[in-house]
Design a protein around this nucleic acid. Structure first.
Lengths: 343, 343
DNA sequence: GTGAAAGCGCTAACAT
DNA sequence: ATGTTAGCGCTTTCAC
């Protein structure tokens, strides 16, 4: 069933000037072989008629779609939405559409998303992995078909494709070292699924910092959680049972840190005097909680922009597609009140 | 230029079984006229070959794209990202792709987004308006072409299309009345661009509440702002200059309210004793600020889900396209510490 | 500089 | 229940 209203096509324009559709097509695409005069005539008339290029006909014919696919773990997170905002802006300027879908942290959904993206013939794909994804075979079709693929933030290095990350190990190391410098000796670490580089590396940074300071690693101080508000509350409750209380907490994201702080405060724990806390992400919330949360600043928007820029570059230079590069985005520890022990 | 790798098409499958492409097409689309046996054979073989339906060929042929367009003011807001999460989920289940773009609160960009969506032949469009959009002509092509259009949250009633909103007037009235009941007599209202229903109606609710309580409306207590963190801080600074200090603040969103509270506290103002505050949206942050922020709960995710459900319904029943309906989603005042004056 | 013609892969009357 | 056929609108060799 076609839509009732007839679309204006290149044939309509061709007829008007007694030209061939090919000429019109070329003119519309600014092909060098067409004379400026005909180009102008055609463009003007096309505009007058309200001609809209039919992307599907073009996609079908050219085998490319001008569409970028993005798969993220979830849309409603500060980090993700701001990365997406960056991506969308760059994509829009470059004339690409963006199809976005979320895995809701589930491998199965991520797989089905990837399949949809593949069927939609996206010209390139940007991915941040779900927390529990183990098998990555759903990305193979893209590789096989030479469709540029980029991982950002939650990456996999199994494919020879570019990745965009911060140095999570270093950030974890610095956050923990900072706590140690404040005199902390029993530091709780709240982490996420160790399948994901971001959490595994922040954890390894934590361990390295302890080691450097000759503080024994204690398994019972580590919590693997979903890093949401609920996890923050539950971890706080576990912490409250500990004797002696830990004197520091390094949480792998701000939301969880903030929820944890709130619960601890409710139990009468003083932050940072009793327990110093450092989060991760520099979400806006970190500046509103009391005390203000020390955290790692993490340029989400820039990462999104960079991802799309790279992807577009890859799409343009078909040759470099399989280049395995790693873009390291700068991050930094921001020290606020929540981690400064009064001497 | 086609991609090097030959795609598997329905012709390949047809050849295998000595069937016609149409039969294969029908089988793949689960057409009732095809026998179960052939369906099974075809499905199995298609799967084996790794067949991927070509959406562009299908779109070109059918004149529809299975794609929903969404234009929002910005991606990195709690409300929007959570509405999008809801939309995406419903869309995905129903087999639709979602193209998302942001206007960044600019009419010009909204226009260009709409044009892109139109060119992309989206089957339906969901919009939340930019704050400064006056002219709405960029949506006319959709109406003209009978493409379902839905506004949510920041709506326009200029078109005969469905809209999804909460009762902003009522919410504003309740928030303000609550402050009045707490004994407030000089209530500041921080609002946004009055072009947008959400802000204009919350404001009108505010005025109505004053009137009902026989409190004179004072222009100098009203601030029209961008409702971001900066606006919260600046408004707080204006408030601090007032003599006497107001005794209540009703802000049209939480982020702004929270920033305002923080600035006021820094100046020694006690919340709620000196100034009681109510926000709007029930962002997570409202439960982390101290004192916890009273606010209006606003089911963003549900609104997103509803929008897509309605849109899909409209797309299915071509007839009802122009039906002008208004879905009112329930909202409610949540009273927390920030607005309870000790008696 | 422009045209003719074939084809991208799928769908949907209309036939059988 | 399945086949025939004619597009959908655009691109792109290969001619001229």
């Amino acid at each position: 069933m076609k839509s009732k209203k007839k679309e204006v096509t290149i044939y309509d324009i061709a007829r008007q000037f007694n030209l061939s559709p090919s000429t019109v097509s070329r003119a519309l695409n600014n092909h060098p072989a067409i004379s400026d005069k005909t180009k102008k005539r055609i463009l003007a008339y096309a505009k007058k008629l309200g001609y809209q290029a039919n992307k599907f006909a073009s996609a079908l014919s050219k085998g490319q779609t001008n569409t970028i696919g993005v798969i993220v773990q979830k849309l409603d997170s500060q980090f993700i939405s701001s990365a997406l905002a960056g991506m969308e802006q760059v994509a829009q300027v470059a004339g690409f559409n963006m199809i976005i879908s979320q895995s809701l942290e589930m491998e199965a959904k991520e797989k089905s998303n990837a399949e949809t993206m593949f069927n939609s013939r996206v010209d390139g794909l940007i991915v941040s992995l779900a927390s529990d994804t183990v098998d990555l075979s759903h990305f193979k079709p893209f590789i096989a078909k030479n469709i540029p693929l980029i991982f950002f933030d939650r990456i996999s290095e199994d494919f020879s494709c570019p990745v965009i990350v911060i140095d999570n190990h270093k950030a974890g190391y610095e956050a923990t070292s900072h706590l140690i410098n404040q005199g902390c000796k029993r530091i709780v670490h709240i982490s996420g699924n160790q399948l994901r580089n971001v959490y595994a590396e922040r954890f390894s940074g934590y361990k390295k910092a302890l080691k450097k300071a000759s503080i024994a690693f204690k398994k019972e101080l580590i919590f693997f959680t979903r890093l949401d508000i609920q996890a923050g509350i539950e971890t706080a409750e576990e912490v409250l049972k500990m004797k002696p209380l830990p004197d520091g907490i390094f949480a792998a994201n701000d939301l969880c840190a903030v929820a944890c702080i709130q619960r601890l405060k409710k139990a009468g724990v003083r932050i940072p005097e009793d327990i110093a806390v450092v989060g991760f992400n520099n979400d806006p919330i970190s500046e509103f909680i009391e005390p203000n949360l020390s955290t790692v600043n993490y340029p989400s928007r820039l990462m999104g922009e960079t991802a799309v820029k790279m992807l577009i570059e890859l799409m343009r230079s078909k040759t470099a597609v399989n280049k395995k590069s790693k873009i390291l985005i700068h991050s930094e520890l921001i020290v606020r009140e929540s981690s400064i022990k009064k001497k």
